[in-house]
Each structure stands twice: as C-alpha cells, then as structure tokens.
C-alpha cells in the first residue's frame, strides 16, 4: 500500500506528513500529529465526534481520506484556542452546563463554530439542525443549544 507525502495547514501550522492511502483524516490527526482532541466515535460518519473544519467547512474527519487533504486547511478543537484565548463558544458551553463526559464536546464545538461563521444569529431551530449530526448521550442537548445562542448574542 502506498504512502503519500502531503502538505497541509493544521491549526495555522504548516505540516508535511506521510500517510498511507487508507488512512482517514481522523487517523492522521490523532496518530501522526497527536491532535487527540478530535474523537473517534463510530468511524462511519454518524456520530460527529470527529468533526473538524476542512477548508472552512465542518466534515466528519473519519469520512475523509488523509491523502485528499493535500493543500488543505484543517482546524481542530485545539485550534479554537487562539493566543491563549478560548473561543466564546468554549466559555458559553461551560457556563451553560453543556459539558458532561466531554467526548462529544470537541465535535460539537466545531459544528457550532461553523454555524456561527455562516449564520451569526441562528434561531434555536437552526442551531438544532446544525448540530443534528453530533450525538451526545449525557446532556440532553438543551444546554448545548442554549450555549450556542448565548455565544451568538455575545458576539453581536
């Protein structure tokens, strides 16, 4: 099986990585770059725990081949903290009580960040629709939806 050298930007850093052709973006992030904030929950594009931003849009990183990411720009949950400052969503999800076990949280935050980037003032229904691909078994979702709306208001 071939190994391909790709160039990409991850959380603002330029990277050169050799990846086997059957590796997913998720595997590359976790196993080559130790960016373990992105979680493996199903490897089938269903749970959303592995959601990252690929060229500005959220994707299930288990559903993208690493070799497809040559030249791409990737942002993971680790990239939401900039210059030591958390994203407003990270604070509002804490304040709302939207974190329990925390395993869905990184993917949830990426989906929410992508939503606010494209729709700075979403309704509760729009937030719910944007997060439908991020399964959470602990919180019951309501506080997470509230946290996204609070973040939207805080950013206005």
């Amino acid at each position: 099986m071939s190994v391909t050298r790709i160039n990409l930007t991850v959380n603002g850093s330029k990277e050169v990585v050799d990846v086997p052709s059957n590796w997913t973006l998720l595997q590359m992030l976790r196993e080559k770059m130790a960016l373990t904030g992105t979680k493996n929950g199903c490897a089938a594009g269903e749970c959303g725990a592995c959601t990252v931003m690929l060229n500005g849009e959220p994707v299930n990183s288990c559903m993208v081949l690493a070799v497809e990411c040559d030249g791409a720009e990737v942002v993971t949950v680790e990239g939401l903290v900039q210059d030591g400052q958390m994203d407003v969503l990270q604070q509002t999800i804490i304040d709302a009580g939207g974190v329990q076990c925390g395993f869905c949280t990184p993917g949830m935050l990426i989906s929410a960040r992508a939503l606010l980037d494209r729709n700075p003032n979403p309704s509760a229904d729009e937030v719910r629709a944007a997060l439908v691909g991020n399964l959470c078994r602990c919180t019951g979702y309501i506080r997470i939806v509230e946290a996204v709306q609070t973040a939207a208001q805080a950013s206005q």
């Binding site: 594009g45 959220p58 994707v59 299930n60 559903m63 989906s111 992508a114 439908v132 691909g133």
Partner: peptide, 9 residues
C-alpha cells in the same frame, strides 16, 4: 440528508 457535516462531503 444526514447531517450538515456529512453534506459537506
């Protein structure tokens, strides 16, 4: 279809 992130692919 499915979820927003899946529809990006």
């Amino acid at each position: 279809v499915a979820s927003y992130q899946l529809r990006n692919r």
